[in-house]
Structures are given as C-alpha cells and as structure tokens.
Write a protein that binds this DNA or RNA. Structure first.
Lengths: 325, 325
DNA sequence: TTGAAAGCGCTACCAG
DNA sequence: CTGGTAGCGCTTTCAA
C-alpha cells in the first residue's frame, strides 16, 4: 500500500475503493498511527491554524474572545494557537515571529502594546491579520474597533445627570499617552462639560490588583472623585474592593463603572454598571475575515474597518450620591 | 552560501567564520526571512514545545498554572501549546491527538475528565506526560497530586469547632461518582464526625454561574446547610452572590469556603476562606519533569507521584453563626 | 570552515 | 482506483 493512498483516505481526497479504505483505517487503528502535522503542513502548505496574540489572558474579556474564536475556528476546521505577551512589546515581537514561523493561516492580534514596527512586520508577512482595538493600516490588515466614545459618553451622561461633577478615569499602563482610544474618549467627553466638571486620570496594571491600587491612589488625592470610570470590568472590580475596605459606600458615596460586561461584572458587589462588548460576534468576525473571506479580498478601505457599537448596561454600582444619615 | 551554513548560524551549532555569520545575518534581516518551524521540527525531530491540555481556562486557577508553565517553559527555551476541552471527553481525545500530531516534547494534562482510555493513549505514545489531579499509571506518566484530604479536613474542623453541624459540598459535574479525590475527601471527613453532623452534595458547572445555581439548589432544600464547602474558589464566588441576593449574611448565617486561593478569592465579598495551592511550584514541577528530567528517568514508582500539601487560609467567609438581632 | 546530499513524513501530481 | 515520485524547508552527517 502506497503512502499516496493512505494520504487520500486520511484527507478524503480523490477516489479510493471502500475495501482499500477499510484496510488503511484498520492498519492505522492497529498501529496507533498519528499523522505528523508538521510534515503535513510542510508538504501541503496550509497549517489550518489561526494564531491569536493577546496581551493578557487574565482579563476575562480576552479569554472570552479566545473561546469564541476557538469555537468558531473549529467550526471551519481550524485550530487556534495562543501566545500571550503580558503587554511586553518584545514578547509581542517574539509572538509575531512565532506565528509566522508556524505558518499560521491568519493572525488575530488583541494586544494594545502594538507599535508601528509590529504593524510593519505583519504587513510584510502578507498573511491575513485582524487587529482588535488598535487602528492599523495595511493591505492584509482588518481592524475591529469598538466605539468606546459612544459607550463612554453614555455612562458619563448618566453620571452627570445623577449629580456627579468630579470624575476619574482608571486605565492601564499601555494607555499612556494620547494614543488610547478609551482615554481619548474620556477626555473628549469631559471637555464637553467644560468647567462644570473636574477630572483626573490614573494608570495601573490591567488586573484586579491594579484597580485596587488605582483606587487607593485616587482616595489619597486632595479631592477624591465621586465617579470612577474604569477602562474595563476587571480593574473596576479591583476598585470596588478598595472602596469597600475603606468603608466607602458604592454608589452612595462614589459611583463606579466598568467596560466589557464580563461575567464577573455581575458577581462583584455591587454589580457593575458597564458597557457590553459582544465578544461572541467578535470571534466570528475574526474567523470570517481570516479564513472565509481573507483580507486580500477586501478591496475598499471601508471594508477593512469594522466598528462595533456597544450598549450600556446599568447596574448597582452607579447612582445619585446619598448623604450618610 | 549553502543552507547548511545558514542553519549553523541560526542554531549556533558548529563553527562559522564571523564574516560569514555576519553576511548570513544581514541577508536574513534584509529578506525578512522567517524560518519555517514545521520544516525545522520535521528535520530535527524536536519541536521544543510543551502541550498543555486543560478543561477550563475560565477557572483562574488553571490560567495561573498555564502562565507559570509558560514562563518556566520559556526559561528553558520551549514554547507551550494550549488546548482546552470544556470538560468534554471527546474534545480531550481530540486534544491529545492534536498534541501527538504536533510532536510535542511533553504533555501537561490538567483535565479531570480524563478516562482510562485517554491514559492508555498517552501511555502508548511514550512521550513524557504529567497529569495533574488525576491518578494515572504509566511508564511515561508522572502524577502531580494535591493533598485535598488534608485541606478539606482542616476547613471542616475549623467549621465544626465554630459550631457548624450541617455541611454541604458544591462540586462540578466531572466529579460525579466516587472517583473525585475532592469529593471523597469531603465524604470521609464527614464520616469521621458520624451522626453528629449532616451533609449533602450538589454538582454544577465549574464557573461562577454554576456556583450560583448550586447555592440556589441548596437553599431550596428542606434544611439548608450552615456551611458550604466548594470545590474551588470560582464556584464559591458564585455561591456568595446567590447568598447575598437572598439576603443571607456570610458568615453570620452561612459560612462558605473555596479551594485554590486564586486572586479572585480576595476580591469577592466577603473574602474567601480557602486552601492555597501553589501553582507557581506546579508549573515549575511540570516543566522539570517534562523537559529537564524526562519521565523515563524516573525509575521508582515513588518518583512518579508528587504530592503537594496545601495550606489553609482563613478569611471573612467563615465564622460562628450569629443570630440576627 | 564550508558545501553536498540524504533524509524527516507528508501531499500532489502524473502515470498506469 | 492506485502507485511512483518530486518536492516542501530544514538539520545533519560526511567530504572537501
């Protein structure tokens, strides 16, 4: 029996007599044969694998995207390879090289530490790329962006209406500089209210304890805010703990908001007012653009930018201030 | 210039004249050459990759293990490949095949849905395997086990001493049957107190909402427990939310415990009494046994079983019952 | 110190 | 329908 025939039954390509097929299958079972995927990719040229590069899997939002990406990828017969960077640009570079070395079908990048250099490298590679949350240009690159500005505006309006005049934004380190869409959205919203409101910004690690420390920093200031808007639910959850430990009531003394609407947001006390970002849809979008209609097909620049409009969800962590009786 | 020379400079193997090396490096940079890792593995035979198979990355405990595994693997020049199974045995089978097909250096399996069939397949493969939390035997298999019994006993004793007589255990679905070490540990501890205590068991999904539902089930029973021991911190956090929503005070009305001591355990309200399982050490152990001293070296059966003794951490979620005044 | 050449295990194409 | 065979891009002898 020739290797060619075996290949044909394994890949279900070409005609094979039932009898022969059975024989092959039996032999495979008997010998516990496991096809070498490296050889397969090397010969066939297609790894049927999507590479996902992510800053921080600890943030449940990214994990959710991973899971949705994976289930969608499996649906179309692909595997997914993850690499995490811990927000480290060097590790991002390494991750990109690794993915290219593995000859993945496409790359999904969910990493806010992405620089122009990284984008250039992705560009040169020519393979389909979808980048989340970072605007980048390239013939083979599609951007998936969330309209933070609208979500942020909605939450700020809610807070303003309920009497808040002193706001703070809690971000994470990679958002330093005026580059971050989320920070920009916050600042611009604040500008609209002009001198009627005060605002400040604190940056910390993207984790529960980062939020925790950020809150302590804010409380240590001379005039602590009455409303704390956080870049995501994870950090907001950390903020809640800090406030609770200080005996500060939420929302009676201070209101808090998150972003993303991860499961955790419903489980902390009080449940977080947040903005829902549909990660299931994002996973599907990514696979679609990476595998089904690869980016090269996208002729018009407009098709290379997909904007998702999120939806505010009001829960217990926001409300009017109430004096302690 | 021959490919052999290029290979030598890339792998730093054999002697190469500095001048030649430079030329090669320059060419590589200029052409943006990316070595094909599949070809490399196929030719060299070593993927320098550890495969990790995990049931549920949503559980932060497993994520922590992944992260520690990854950082340790990088330290010794290896990559890690993750596959998640969602507790589905078929997906576990697929994950094992995938890893074998990728010719990983070793497999770290953190999947409680592992059956004897899976173990057999791993055994046959002959590659080094470390299995967490499931006792399995094989020439190439090392077990890492946590001494749950001791942790469980300690917590139950704490609760008994503070007056609790009615206990419940919240587990997850894959722990059905008398197979689960954690459940067994609970039951045996209960047996020790004989007829002085009552106990019951509920199984749900391993997630926040699983714990949430489990708590509702317990509360719906005729005689709700006064102490709820959960299989892990994630489910315990879900339990806390359910109790809070029902207006039940923790620990005044009901005490709750977790297991693992993930970060989240400190952030829920009240903070969870739990048992610390050192995942950093586990990651190091795994890499050590998979890469540094591969399992075939372990002559004695004793060396194939590593038991970790965890440590109880008491926080606010446990205490004596207090009447509502 | 370098090059030539034989595979690694597969897929894909061409004959038969 | 099946077999032969030429690569895929690397590593690794073996010679030079």
């Amino acid at each position: 029996m020739s290797t060619a025939t075996v290949s044909r039954v394994l890949n279900d390509t070409g005609q094979v007599r039932d009898e022969t097929r059975d024989a092959v299958l039996r032999a495979i079972a008997r010998l516990h044969y496991t096809p070498n995927l490296h050889a397969r990719t090397l010969a066939g040229g297609d790894s049927r694998t999507i590479g996902m590069i992510v800053s921080n899997l600890e943030n449940p939002f990214f994990l959710d995207i991973y899971r949705s990406l994976e289930s969608e990828a499996h649906r179309v017969g692909h595997e997914v390879l993850v690499a995490s960077t811990g927000y480290d640009p060097d590790r991002l570079t390494a991750a990109i090289r690794l993915m290219l070395g593995r000859r993945v079908t496409g790359i999904a990048a969910v990493a806010s530490e992405m620089t122009q250099g990284h984008v250039n490298e992705l560009n040169r590679s020519g393979i389909p790329v979808v980048i989340y949350d970072v605007a980048a240009t390239g013939r083979n690159i599609v951007n998936v962006l969330v309209d933070y500005a609208s979500g942020m505006r909605e939450m700020i309006e809610l807070l303003y209406t309920t009497g808040h005049r002193h706001f703070a934004f809690v971000g994470h380190h990679t958002m330093l500089g005026p580059l971050s869409a989320r920070l920009v959205a916050f600042n611009e919203s604040m500008q609209q209210y002009g001198r009627r409101v005060k605002h400040q910004v604190v940056n910390e690690t993207d984790a529960l304890d980062g939020g925790y420390r950020a809150a302590h920093l804010l409380l240590a200031g001379e005039t602590p805010p009455t409303a704390i808007l956080c870049v995501n639910d994870l950090m907001a959850s950390g903020v809640l703990r800090a406030l609770r430990e200080r005996g500060i009531r939420v929302p009676d003394d201070i209101s808090v908001t998150g972003f993303d609407n991860v499961t955790l947001a419903e489980y902390v006390t009080p449940a977080l007012t947040t903005v829902d970002v549909p990660r299931l849809a994002i996973g599907q979008l990514v696979v679609d653009r990476l595998v089904l209609q690869p980016v090269a097909t996208q002729r018009k620049a407009r098709d290379r930018e997909l904007v998702i409009t999120p939806r505010m969800i009001v829960r217990g962590s926001t409300g009017p201030m109430r004096k302690r009786r």
